[in-house]
Design a protein around this nucleic acid. Sequence first.
DNA 1: CTGTTAGCGCTTTCAT
DNA 2: ATGAAAGCGCTAACAG
Lengths: 331, 331
Amino acid sequence: MNIKEVAKHAKVSTATVSRTINGSDKVSARTAERVRKAIKELNFYPNTHARTLVSGRSRMLGLIISDITNPFFPELVKHFEDQAVQKGLEVIIANTDYKPRRMAECIRRMVERKVDGTAIMTSEADPALLIELTRRNIPTVFMDTGKNSPLSANINIDYEQGIQEGLQHLFSLNHRKIAFISGPLNLQSAQRRLDAFVSGMKARGIKVENEMIEKGDHRIEGGVFAMRNLLRLAEPPTAVMTSNDMTAIGALGTIHDAGLQVPRDVSLIGFDDISFAHLTQPPLTTIRLSRSQLAITALAALERLMRGENEEDVDYTIPTHLVMRGSTRTL
Amino acid sequence: MNIKEVAKHAKVSTATVSRTINGSDKVSARTAERVRKAIKELNFYPNTHARTLVSGRSRMLGLIISDITNPFFPELVKHFEDQAVQKGLEVIIANTDYKPRRMAECIRRMVERKVDGTAIMTSEADPALLIELTRRNIPTVFMDTGKNSPLSANINIDYEQGIQEGLQHLFSLNHRKIAFISGPLNLQSAQRRLDAFVSGMKARGIKVENEMIEKGDHRIEGGVFAMRNLLRLAEPPTAVMTSNDMTAIGALGTIHDAGLQVPRDVSLIGFDDISFAHLTQPPLTTIRLSRSQLAITALAALERLMRGENEEDVDYTIPTHLVMRGSTRTL
DNA sequence: CTGTTAGCGCTTTCAT
DNA sequence: ATGAAAGCGCTAACAG
């Protein structure tokens, strides 16, 4: 089943069939109709690989993420894919599993499959990877890493805004002794959240003591462990901000296990607003980073890059905002 | 950058390069070495589309699921993909969004991209879809639907086992007044869980009254709504089983909101064991359906189908088992 | 508006 | 063991 058969069936040349498929206006309405009929009758689907081979464009996009089982990503994937499919683009997804080694492999897969563009939405991205992609002329969108260039765009996330809002909220609730459980500080994005916290506190005239900063790992376990340390302090914090919701969920469990209650004894603020954040007991006050906005922006940036539009001066920034729920309370 | 350049660089023909890439043993060790060196030096990656075009095999697999943001799926996707990538296969994922209409579109995408096989892991699968795939000679694996055939395999899920274990557990805890919140009963898989519950109760000498069966939708909201009805009853159940964990989470919230406690006032058992099931307060007792097992089995079945091995007599069954946690208690 | 034809990059006979 | 050459299914000049 191929274009030749369709051509025979519709009594035209393969070129005409091709033109009809691709919506060229150089086909008379009557001919086009006949071709479409033949296509339908023969149940013909064009072979995308042949198309790719000749056109040089695969209409496939790569989406590299850290780990699909991390609740941060599924929504991102979904929105990205929805948008892409609407535009007739296929998406191939690759997980790095947070391992830089696997990133190289992911890139190789993308190159082999000749994707028209790649969105690297991992937290551990390395700008050096750009080289391999740019060498192949593959437009690439990063998150929080690197700069715009003719072949790449960077989506910046405004962690500061959300963290300021969280701090503001906590201060208005009379909290002053506030701790922060960070993510892995080798991640630039985690470091930035911590920095935003520290400078926000300083701006409000409070010097953050070392013991008020715990290092987590962006997973439940890290939150559990860090919160235990915080609870053991002579003067434990009255409120805790965390680098992501998973950390907050771990902290929440620890607080409960210690016989204390959120928000009665400790106020708690997460980050990300993953879908389960409002299902905890109490529902988690958190800072939302909209994955749909991120996905949509990334795809839009990628499309511009693919069209060869100059991106260097465009600023892609995703805001973050406080979402008040039940895990914070006045002191 | 193509095979011709490599050939020129290594001073051999393109055929020899091709043979080397494909590990043919008809290449002398010395020549092969030279070719590999050229490949490395030129940073050459074979064009998969050209390969597909000539070989007819794309080394891509389709994975159709209902919705990646449904916590049931990410793990399934991950394991499936991990296995596939290890074997040099790419996976393209499609979400149906639970809409049969979109399923047709997903299938079209798979056919267009010439996948070597498809795993349809949606809860709402329709065996009629097999036609389109079989007509194209695309091996297909279903979940809980259809039969084995030379071009398709069915993975059966043993819902009954898990539900019996749940019931057994509840009975041993002296519960007799047990309600069930089902999923959408147009889904065969939901109906089977309900049936297993009813027949399990009957086998234990208890006739299930109508008011003890509520219909949910496999989402939080359905669980909330159904649990409200149950709580309003003159004689509410002392224990509730649900068709999936999302439903149980909704029910859990409703019970708490009503000023009651789990498991003190009501025991609760979920289904699936999604990753958040052990993060609820209390941790959810549930029936585990291993997504890794499901994914691995599906891929293995698909591979056999692709190799043309006769599958008709093979029985693929995934067990389900009770996981005891904190949401059940003796009456 | 339509047809003819030369490739796209690779694999695979068929020779040698 | 290696090379020459014929396609895989499609698109895009070019010709008419």
